[in-house]
Amino acid sequence: MIGPSHPARPRVPGARGDRAVRLAWLVLLLATSMMAPPAAAQGMRQPPPLPTEPPFNLSDPTVVQAGQSLFRQTCTGYCHGAEGRLSRAPALRGREFETRYLYQRIAYGFPPMPAFQTLLTPEDIWKLVAYIKSLQGAKE
């Protein structure tokens, strides 16, 4: 016998055997590794656990404001443009993004976008998510 035939693995809290989520994860990882250049692929980290639900209400104005401040400090001008306006990196203003996707993209990055998972706390990443989501209704 090579491995346990009985599924004795501990259950991951929050996973609840949701195959669809795990499948989506696999697809995302696969897509990322296929798109990333070889050297980056060599350096791929083990994915951290899925982000849990945000610890605060993402539409709370104080959270959004904290996110705006963080957004400015993490190089908007060179990257996504002031207030998420058009830049060389994708414009974030006036666009709809799925919440979890935003979190993952900030945490893991995508070359040349840095991965912020070791630089920012999960709370800070959620604040950025809150700010970026606040831009989706912006007209200009």
Binding site: A39, G43, R45, G109, P111, P114
Partner: peptide, 16 residues
């Protein structure tokens, strides 16, 4: 020669 880079590179501003 392709340098084997530490994954920390993906977290940096000045790269690649």
């Amino acid at each position: 020669y392709f340098a084997k880079l530490d994954p920390v590179v993906n977290t940096l501003f000045f790269q690649p």
